[in-house]
């Protein structure tokens, strides 16, 4: 299995793009991540991650339509490539297999 490894943040960005199904672009991704994970994310970090993922071939992008709230500028819309999807799946499978081998699965604490 030869593929580029993903950092944790890259994985989250890639997943977010997959979740947003065609509506994924810089600001939207940033907002989505900070809402879902509760961590503060900076725009430039997301952009950098997107660029890296595109370089690795897991994302592809095209320019969308200009909108007024962007001052008449177009947005770059990202979609996950087949390679990106496979990567996410592989990561998920590896994790599932490890979770399955866990003898004493963690249970939420009920009392002290």
């Amino acid at each position: 299995m030869k593929r580029s490894y993903l950092g944790e943040f890259e994985e989250i960005v890639l997943l977010t793009v997959a979740v947003m199904e065609g509506g994924a672009y810089g600001v939207a991704i940033t907002h989505e991540i900070s809402e879902q994970t509760g961590r503060s994310v900076r725009l430039n970090q997301v952009h950098a991650a997107l660029e890296r993922l595109e370089d690795k071939g897991m994302l592809k992008s095209e320019m969308g339509e200009p909108t007024a709230e962007r001052g008449g500028r177009r947005k770059r819309l990202f979609t996950v490539t087949a390679y990106g999807r496979r990567t996410l799946q592989e990561i998920q499978e590896v994790r599932v297999s490890f979770w399955a081998r866990l003898l004493n699965p963690f249970k939420p604490a009920t009392s002290l």
């Binding site: 672009y25 810089g26 600001v27 940033t30 725009l43 952009h47 320019m63 200009p66 909108t67 709230e69 962007r70 001052g71 500028r73 177009r74 947005k75 770059r76």
Partner: peptide, 11 residues
């Protein structure tokens, strides 16, 4: 430049 400026302005 375009996409970054756009994102920044939207934000």
């Amino acid at each position: 430049l375009e996409e970054i400026q756009g994102d920044l302005q939207e934000e």
